[in-house]
Design a protein around this nucleic acid. Structure first.
Lengths: 233, 233
DNA sequence: TTATGAGATATTGCATACAATTCTTGCCGG
DNA sequence: CCGGCAAGAATTGTATGCAATATCTCATAA
């Protein structure tokens, strides 16, 4: 029986997951300060643990870690946003390219069930909708069987949520469920060409929705922020 | 003068760089144990610092971090190797796609100077040759101006070194300098199509050289290792 | 009123001490 | 001679304390 061991539910991991979820749910909005002490006290662990979690989140680009100034939820610039979606487009196209025509019936069922859940959430609980949409892309990457690819896609999807919260229209569903359905259909019939094209445009559509710059001042703000960062301010 | 501040020469970073270099230079061969205490003593820092560096290296896939059992240099499986090169091919093609025809004369000169250094090192100090070949790819990614892309390519190039050391023919130059030259030429004349094709095949060639399985037993070994890992052994 | 600067406060950087777990060694029984 | 077991050693996981740095407060002077 392939049981392995319960993967050592380390405290650091727990804190990491809590913070990540809080960020993705926008309970912690972009730019929010993340003092080690306060977090540790709230969660009942020492600063050591919190520090590890923060370091990991920093590595994944979800928070920024300025020396002697503490951590805060990352505020990706518009350029970061564009870059993230550029890489996402490339990698997720690679995912579907490897998946077309190679999905087992079980895997197809998994995907369809997920999309159905998305559809249901879309009307019943719009909050979870965003999360589910992201998880669809992660699920696709997982099915590719390529762990490295999975890791990068997961990271990029997470960061996309930040982008959306900063520049997207509030509460806009970031993925159209219909596009997910079309994609699954193309994958099922092994039409790699169409599937890649669909994913390509799907990501473009997400990027378009996410990079709306709901606030015109934001561009200016980012421009300044970029210069400020170069000067270490 | 855009000076910024001296980027806070944190001790953790220093240890991280030392260990990373040691791994990439194969001073620490794959599978080598990395006891926190010993490293800390050697480098004159506390375990706290070493731990941070190890966590970061773990995040980048250069070491493995087994709970309560310590860290060791990662031993990527052949499948990991294939996955890494698959993603590299996709991302580095994206790099040249964005670079074709957009390189300034200064940037072109930088690339040519680098290749020249590679060529010189190829005969004079074959050890540095491998490192320089990797840095060429990182340099290209940097010129793309896409920070996310740069981060991923850097990571993948590093991990490729590990793959090469495990499965490649010893001391084989992992990049043909001539291929780098052709690529630069295509980029200079803005021939995106050709440049992408060249990069595509270049990565394929690297993968072929890196995944030779110089030792036939290795496949078997990896197979066992994969199963063992599932059982938590 | 505004700008400046010194002191106070808060937060991070780092090292050390202790607890928990795993690995080693040597003994004992079969 | 071999296998199992228990005590000890070694190594990692976590918490805490001190030092260094940044931030804030507020008084003082132009």
């Amino acid at each position: 029986m392939p049981k392995g061991k319960p993967p050592a539910p380390s405290k650091s991991d727990a804190v990491y997951r809590v913070l990540k979820r809080a960020i993705l749910d926008q309970a912690l909005t972009a730019g929010a300060k993340l003092p080690e002490d306060a977090i540790g006290e709230k969660l009942g662990v020492s600063r050591t643990i919190v520090r590890q979690a923060l370091a990991r989140l920093n590595g994944e680009g979800l928070i920024e870690l300025r020396p002697h100034k503490g951590a805060c939820v990352a505020q990706p610039t518009l350029e970061d946003g564009r870059n993230i979606f550029t890489v996402r487009r490339s990698l997720e196209t690679l995912v579907v390219e490897g998946l077309a025509g190679r999905l087992t019936p079980q895997q197809l069922h998994l995907l369809e069930a997920h999309v159905e859940a998305e559809d249901k959430a879309r009307t019943e609980q719009p909050a979870a909708s965003i999360q589910l949409a992201g998880e669809f892309h992660v699920l696709l990457a997982r099915l590719s069987g390529n762990d490295i690819l999975l890791r990068y896609v997961t990271e990029l999807v997470s960061r996309s949520s930040l982008i959306l919260s900063l520049y997207g229209r509030p509460h806009s569903p970031d993925c159209a469920v219909s596009e997910h359905r079309e994609l699954i259909a193309a994958l099922a019939r092994g039409d790699s060409e169409t599937a890649c094209g669909l994913m390509h445009h799907h990501i473009e559509a997400i990027a378009a929705r996410a990079l709306l710059t709901k606030n015109p001042d934001r561009e200016f703000h980012d421009l300044l922020a970029a210069y400020a960062k170069e000067e270490g301010l």
